[in-house]
Simulated assay, not measured.
Amino acid sequence: MSQNHVDYSEKRDFIRMRVDTEVEVIQAGEVIAAVCLDLSASGMQIQAPRTFQVGDELQIKLDSDHPALAGLDVSTRVVWIASHAEGQQKLGLKIISMR
């Protein structure tokens, strides 16, 4: 797993919320179904069914079924990768902007 210039102490600066929910990953117009494992104020961890590279910019959409809560639509950058079984990856994503 590569941290790519992210100081370990930064990992403790934000509370992580475990969510285990489906998200859409959009890269260059391609929509890929993935699972958001956890979410914080500055980033998220997802599990994706295909491979990405550190530095890739991905749009992440998480729909809300609750009428009073808006969904999440964020631009992110891949900051670390952990390979998983059968071509899947766990990705650490830094939130760049919210839409």
Rank of each mutant, 00 (worst) to 15 (best):
M1L: 05
M1T: 08
M1Q: 02
S2K: 07
Q3C: 04
Q3L: 15
N4Y: 14
N4R: 13
N4C: 11
V6S: 10
V6C: 08
D7I: 05
Y8N: 12
E10Y: 15
R12Y: 15
R12N: 13
D13E: 09
F14M: 03
R16D: 08
R18V: 15
R18T: 15
R18P: 10
R18I: 15
V19L: 12
V19C: 13
V19T: 14
V19P: 01
D20A: 12
T21K: 10
T21F: 02
E22N: 10
E22V: 13
E22D: 10
E22G: 10
E22T: 13
V23F: 03
V23N: 02
E24C: 06
E24T: 11
V25L: 15
V25H: 08
V25T: 11
I26F: 06
I26L: 11
I26W: 06
Q27W: 03
A28M: 05
A28I: 06
G29S: 04
G29D: 06
E30K: 14
E30D: 12
E30I: 14
V31E: 07
I32Q: 01
A33M: 15
A33D: 14
A34Q: 01
A34Y: 02
V35I: 14
C36R: 00
L37H: 12
D38A: 05
L39A: 05
L39G: 02
S40M: 03
S40D: 05
A41V: 01
A41N: 04
A41L: 06
S42L: 07
G43M: 05
Q45W: 00
Q45S: 11
I46D: 03
I46Y: 04
I46K: 03
I46C: 02
I46L: 04
I46N: 03
I46F: 05
Q47T: 13
A48H: 06
A48P: 06
P49R: 11
R50Q: 11
R50E: 09
R50L: 09
T51V: 15
T51I: 15
F52D: 06
Q53E: 14
V54A: 05
V54L: 08
V54G: 06
D56V: 02
D56N: 08
D56T: 03
D56A: 03
E57M: 13
E57S: 10
E57I: 12
E57K: 13
L58F: 08
L58D: 09
Q59N: 15
K61A: 08
L62P: 01
L62F: 07
D63F: 15
D63K: 14
D65Y: 07
H66I: 15
P67T: 12
A68E: 13
A68H: 09
A70F: 07
V74W: 04
S75R: 12
T76C: 15
T76Q: 08
T76R: 07
R77C: 09
R77P: 06
V78E: 01
I81L: 02
I81T: 04
I81E: 00
S83C: 00
S83K: 06
H84L: 14
H84C: 12
A85F: 04
E86F: 06
E86R: 08
G87V: 10
G87L: 09
G87P: 04
Q88A: 13
Q88V: 06
Q89S: 08
Q89Y: 05
Q89G: 05
G92R: 05
K94M: 06
K94Q: 13
K94P: 00
K94A: 09
I95M: 11
I96N: 01
S97K: 05
R99I: 10
